[in-house]
Design a protein around this nucleic acid. Structure first.
Length: 1097
RNA sequence: GCCGAAGUGGUGGAAUUGGUAGACACGAUGGAUUCAAAAUCCAUUGCUGAUAAGGCGUGCGGGUUCGAUUCCCGCCUUCGGUACCA
């Protein structure tokens, strides 16, 4: 019998499918004993694209499959599932072009993927397949979303907690003591205030704390395409597709508060077995920097305001104390204040009022910021300070406010009259826009900056704001206005990408304004420059040119002063950025201190002044979670009165509705806006329209969310669903999650380093916090397989002529390289000219200049494997021509798993020949009379010592290699093994049976066939892994390399049990040694027993 | 710029703790078999030299060591990630 791989592979693939050989046992249902130890091997599931698989795709799957099969031999209960990340953009775009439903496209692609995967002989447990686009699956994606919605992050306990617990805290103590992750614009309130809020107000506030929340986000909106574009989809300010204009637009989008988890995501990296480079990517992405927040009060305002506006951090005029005082007052109102507040708060007057609010340096009783109206209620104490109050009123009114003053008695006696007066005053006041009344994020009056080097604060010679910074408009002096506006306009035009690309040019404009240095009180000029990014930190920097190269360049360019505040540092050419060992100089109280001491001291002094505090900043930003797409998970959210609410759990899944077109609506709503019928399970109303929903008790006039979730939603938790994929009660049962825990080995591409792998860690931590999981991390060990590159083939066309010349004739001719399909080239790089002409008819009449031997040789280049480069190699073809076992072993043989490496089909014969030789070991040589057919022939005689040595050497090496994921070297080891056994004419069962098991993880089909021929009725999959025995490898002699001055000259066979001295004596007495020594006496002889002898002359 | 990985024959790669550099393959050359081809088998194959002796050789330049692909210092190049991150 010859090695008929096609037949053998089909046979065993059917056997595995029929017998469910790879089905992993789950705990729970009986018998739950005897499960064995759990081991979870997972591949990153694929997006089923229309192009199908090329030979690069299965690389990681083969590696994980080998490991999974190895673990089964070792007695583990192995979970090795596969599924599809089946929501995504390509299917949607195809739908837009052709009208075909993405579900149909996806289904077809999956079918094709499955066929291709099955041919390679993977040991997947297909009974656990998941697809992210299946309602049974995304039901739980939606459920997790709701859990996020119902949670907040407590920095005190460092975990996510139920939002109901937050409500309890608010009700009993307000929000001032809570250390929660929340939006920046949350205002302080007391328990009393909270309890007095309407439920609508409460919901608005809670939304600022939820782990998934609605926020205004700036996005790149393309009106023509009706969609949001990522930065890299924009080229020169217009869309990459179609070239339509793109505008920055604020949109209300769902966001995920991943930033709350930044520190844990960073710390826990130390606990997982990932490559250092991948961990480093995540560390950089999280971007922790420790430093300080510092406030620089603004000295001059263009309106001629002499005195700086002071923010809450300012301590020079006690505003910090004032603020505390205001809070106190709020908690302890007078009767009159309480009465008035009750009326004001309920918005009876149509405007929002604030209580005990800081206006400049004064606490006012009530203020309506949008109408600039201040209300004061005078208690008894006021009689004594009428004059002071007058001053105060004058100052406040000079800032554009109107002040109304009431007496206690007035309020208590006739509240209606008071309210009437207020109403009249309100109507008389001009309306002030939202923007102006809001305090700028940099603090009410000062410029807040984040710095990692507060120790260099005495080196500050100017400040730079991002052009988008909200303070810019307010502080710019009339003289500078024109220039500043021109600069802002110019930089707004440049896309973020352009700004990033153009690193070298230094641009900026002086605003004309000055800030006050916190310590020296010197004026510091305020500039704007687009090297400062609005999105990082506070969008403003304190510039220390002596210590920061960008500040240095900026200072040099605009001729700004540079102060050297480092001892013994030369800053004549460039900034000095050293930290450790640096001593600060020329810096008042910091002079003479080392970097670390100065850093702490600076923060301490800033805190004393109320102008700063230590702060840790993270680069990691909250993740936008809304997409204006069709083919994604619908949000389980509806709106009532403009506020979002989760759909009741029993109504999940909220199924993706049908639409007529996959484009946005004419009103600019996402494609789901076109849906007429929604599947809706509540109260047996199976299908309802958006209108019907709106008029239902739930809807209350609001509709369902029309955005869908991004691609990473479904992939962030799929690993847990595989543990218990058909559970309808919960996303994974308690028993299953306790038994399987998390993924022991995860294999996939490194392109997911900062996306999927980070989000998945985030969701896992969240689910753990809320008690839904028992593990902190999703993936214990992770390996990135390297990309398999294509080897493109080129023909060369002479410039301007219809002549194609062979590679070696190109010389200095001007030629144009043209991709040739690699299937038209043989292993010697010779082109099939006729085939090429057929393939590219435009070259049918071309003249082909060949080499002397008449061959046309193509040029070769390694490129990414892609259709457009005609270098794609299809695994189906390889399986057809060489077999799946050959494909599997060859992919492993190409090189280290984690390394990128080019594919070259020519090399596959080496592995294929090896499998043929392996087959031959188990078969007798044909005798001429038998017509050349081999027959199965294995002897039960004892094997030779040499054969046993070969076997055990192989067991040892292959096992070590598998444990180290060094699959390429284990393939070599198998080759050496089979070469040796062939030379030994070994055909003993004693050797060949263990060998079949050993190779089964790599070449499972041939192993099964040989295993069954050896007389085993059970599959080889569960056969016990051979045990390495040292005794077969024990040697009595060693072939010593004898070197002179470190150069190996010859070898000598010596017994291993003789002493150093004896070795030295024997070696020196050897004739060859004498000739190398040529009379000289050796200076020194190094003998390392069992290793080497080195003679120094 | 920063972070990470890597530079070894014509090619993919091996040498796992400092100990015979180039395992195992591909390709190439020569041969056997065959009418011929495919397949198979044998031999040679780092460079140089003459098929010898010898010399050179793991990106480059130094160093440590009896001995360095491996450790140290300084460069160069390639690939990947990331970026005016304050």
């Amino acid at each position: 019998m010859n090695y008929n791989f096609n037949e053998i592979e089909a046979k065993w693939q059917k056997y595995w499918a029929d017998n469910q050989t790879f089905k992993a046992k789950n705990p729970g249902s009986p018998p739950s004993e005897g499960l064995g130890e759990a081991y979870y091997v997972l591949d990153m599931f694929p997006y089923p694209s229309g192009a199908g698989l090329h030979v690069g795709h299965p690389l990681g799957y083969i590696a994980s499959d080998i490991y999974a099969r190895y673990k089964r031999h070792k007695g583990f209960n192995v979970l090795h599932p596969q599924g599809y990340d089946s929501f995504g953009l390509p299917a949607e775009q195809y739908a837009i072009q052709t009208g075909q439903h993405p579900a149909v496209t996806t289904e077809n692609n999956i079918k094709r993927y499955r066929e291709q995967l099955d041919k390679i002989g993977f040991s997947f447990d297909w009974s656990r397949e998941v697809r992210t686009s299946n309602p049974e699956y995304y039901k739980w994606t939606q459920w997790i979303f709701i859990q996020l919605f119902e949670s907040w992050y407590d920095h005190e306990q460092d975990k996510s907690r139920a939002i109901s617990e937050l409500e309890e805290i608010f009700a009993s103590e307000g929000n001032t003591k809570v250390k929660a992750a929340c939006d920046d614009d949350v205002e302080d309130f007391t328990a009393e205030e909270w309890n007095a809020f309407s439920s609508e107000e409460k919901q608005k506030i809670l939304l600022k704390y939820r782990l998934t929340y609605l926020a205004e986000t700036e996005v790149n909106w393309c009106p023509q395409l009706g969609t949001v574009l990522a930065n890299d989809e924009i080229v020169n300010g217009v869309s990459e597709r179609g070239g339509y204009p793109v505008v920055r637009k604020k949109m209300t989008q769902w966001s995920m508060r991943i930033s709350a988890f930044a520190e844990r995501l960073l710390q826990d990296l130390d606990k997982i077995d990932w490559t250092e480079s991948l961990k480093e990517s995540q560390r950089n992405w999280i971007g922790k920097s420790v430093g300080a927040m510092v406030e620089f009060p603004i000295l001059s305002f263009p309106e001629g305001e002499e005195k700086a506006q002071r923010g809450y951090m300012t301590g020079g005029n006690n505003s910090h104390l004032l603020l505390e005082k205001a809070r106190e007052n709020r908690n302890d109102p007078t009767d009159a204040e309480r009465i008035l507040w009750k009326h004001l708060r309920n918005k009876n007057l149509g405007y929002k009022f604030r209580q005990q609010h800081l206006i400049y340096d004064f606490i006012v009783d009530f203020v309506c910021l949008s109408k600039r109206l201040v209300l004061e209620v005078d208690g008894g104490i006021h009689d004594l300070q009428i004059e002071e109050d007058e001053n105060r009123t004058a100052i406040i009114e000079s800032k554009g406010f109107k002040v109304l003053r009431f007496k206690n008695a007035e309020v208590i006696g006739d509240i209606d009259a008071v309210l009437e007066k207020i109403e009249t005053a309100l109507s008389g006041q001009p309306h002030v826009s939202e923007k102006v009344q809001k305090a700028p994020p940099s603090g009410a009056g000062g410029i807040r900056v984040f710095t990692t080097r507060p120790d260099t604060i005495f080196g500050v010679t100017f400040m730079t704001l991002a052009p988008e910074h909200e303070l810019v408009k307010k502080i710019t002096t009339p003289e500078q206005k024109e220039e500043v506006e021109a600069y802002i306009a110019a930089s707004a035009k440049r896309s973020e990408r352009e700004r990033m690309a153009d690193v070298k040019s230094i641009t900026g404009v002086f605003t004309g304004a000055y800030a006050e240095h916190p310590f020296t009180k010197e004026p510091v000029p305020i500039w704007i420059g687009d090297y400062v990014l609005a999105g990082y930190g506070t969008g403003a920097v304190m510039a220390v040119p002596c210590g920061d190269q960008r500040d240095y360049d900026f200072a040099k360019h605009f001729d700004l002063p540079i102060i050297n505040i480092f001892e013994n540092a030369d800053i004549s050419e460039e900034a000095f950025s050293g930290k450790e060992g640096t001593v600060i100089a020329n810096s008042d109280f910091l002079s003479g201190l080392k970097y670390k001491e100065a850093l702490q001291k600076a923060i301490l002094e800033l805190e004393k002044l109320g102008l700063g505090y230590g702060k840790t900043n993270y680069r990691l930003r909250d993740a936008v979670f809304s997409r204006q797409r069709y083919w994604g998970e619908p949000f389980p959210i509806y709106y009532n009165n403009g506020l979002p609410h989760p759909i009741p759990e029993h109504c999940l899944p909220l199924e993706l509705p049908e639409v007529e077109k996959y484009l946005p609506t004419e009103e600019g709503e996402p494609p789901l806006g076109r849906a007429e019928k929604w599947h809706w399970d509540e109260k047996n109303e199976k299908v309802i329209s958006q209108e019907e929903f709106e008029s239902s008790p739930l809807g209350g006039g609001g509709g369902l969310e029309l955005n869908t979730m991004p691609g990473w939603a479904g992939s962030s938790w799929y690993l847990f669903r595989y543990m218990d994929p058909h559970n309808e009660e919960t996303f994974v049962s308690k028993e299953a999650k306790q038994y399987w825990e998390n993924v022991d080995l995860y294999i996939g591409g490194s392109e997911h380093a900062t996306g999927h792998l980070l989000y998945s860690r985030f969701w896992t931590k969240f689910l753990k916090d809320r008690g839904y999981l028992t593990v902190k991390e999703p993936f214990k060990k992770l390996i990135n397989q390297g990309m398999i590159l294509g080897t493109s083939a080129f023909v060369y066309r002479l410039e301007g002529e219809n002549v194609l010349i062979s590679k070696n004739l190109v010389g200095k001719n001007a030629v144009q390289p043209i991709h040739a399909d690699v299937s038209l080239v043989n292993s010697s790089d010779e082109l099939d000219i006729e085939g090429f002409k057929k393939w590219r008819p435009e070259f049918a009449d071309s003249k082909f200049l060949t080499e002397e031997d008449g061959k046309y040789v193509v040029g070769r280049e390694v490129e990414k494997m892609s259709k457009s480069k005609y270098n794609v190699v299809n695994p189906d073809d390889i399986c057809e021509n060489y077999g799946a076992d050959t494909l599997r072993m060859y992919e492993m043989f190409l090189g280290p798993l984690e390394q990128a490496k080019p594919w070259n089909t020519a090399g596959i014969t080496g592995v294929h020949n090896f499998l043929k030789k392996l087959w031959k070991l188990y078969h007798s040589s044909p005798s001429p009379s038998e017509g050349g057919e081999n027959s199965f022939s294995v002897s039960d005689e004892p094997a030779s010592k040499d054969s046993l040595k070969t076997l055990h050497k192989t067991i040892k090496k292959v096992t070590e290699d598998i444990e180290n994921f060094s699959f390429n070297t284990s393939v070599s080891t198998f080759m050496i093994c089979v070469n040796e056994l062939s030379a030994q004419n070994c055909n003993q069962r004693e050797v060949l049976e263990p060998l079949a098991v050993l190779i089964a993880p790599y070449a499972p089909h041939i192993a099964e066939e040989l295993w069954s021929k050896l007389g085993n009725s059970e599959s080889v999959v569960t056969a016990v892994y051979p045990v390495y025995e040292e005794k077969f490898l024990v040697e009595s002699t060693k072939n010593y390399p004898i070197s002179f001055n470190g150069k190996m000259r010859f070898t000598m066979e010596l017994p291993l049990d003789i002493s150093k001295e004896e070795i030295e004596k024997t070696v020196l007495e050897d004739e060859r040694s004498k000739s190398y020594l040529s009379e000289a006496t050796p200076k020194k002889v190094i003998v390392v027993p069992g290793k080497i002898v080195n003679i120094v002359i």
